[in-house]
Amino acid sequence: MSKRNLSSPPSSPLARAAALCVCLALAACGTDTSKTAGSRAALGAVKSVTGLFAGGGGKAPAKAGPDLADLATRALAATPGPVMLGVVEKYEATLVIAPNASNGDYVTWKTPDLRTFSFKQGVLTSTRGFGDDLMSSQADDAIAMITQRRTGSATRTWYFLSGVGNTTALKMNCSYATGDPVHLKIGAIDARTTPVVETCQRGGVKVQNLYWVDRAGNVVKSRQWISGAMGYFVTQMLRQ
């Protein structure tokens, strides 16, 4: 086999076809999205498979740590109402999140890229738009323990989708403990809070959530579990 001149453009039929394929996948065109979506998505899949072998596991690259105080100032300036900072630990990116909808006691907060988090009285009950979302929760007893800063135990249920898309429930027994009061001052928040530790366990699954709750029962800061694959979500309220 002769040595290939590396500077020459790809000339084998395979290379030409591959180049054309990539161009078209980027530019598959038409009004029938059901036919063009496939090739676009397939390109994404090729990237994720190469990522798999590169050892990255498809994980989003860690973003450089932003200056939190600066981010808080800008977030507060951008909206007159409630706003929080959130970090999905797995992605290590800080999100600015504002409330988008409410239904009864549930408030849904939305990120600029259209992912959402729903809370009931500050306790995370569902997420949307991520892979492996938390679909819904039954957590009323737990919410009472947390917002009233009590010690004791309660059961709480998380609902997920299985691999085939069925609703599955994870019911865990949880214990609640409180810590010494902590003063939190960030953004428009200036509150004396009680840390509440929620420890839940079932079989091999163990979850530990943390809530900093003010005297009115508001969760000002928290670290809450989303799902096995998504891990934990950290929130910091900037304005209630």
Binding site: A45, G104, R115, T116
Partner: peptide, 19 residues
């Protein structure tokens, strides 16, 4: 089939109910 190769729901979140 029971274990998707990708996360099962990377998409735009739905609109929410307006009571």
């Amino acid at each position: 089939p029971n274990r998707p190769t990708s996360h099962s729901g990377t998409e735009e979140a739905p609109h929410f109910v307006r009571p």
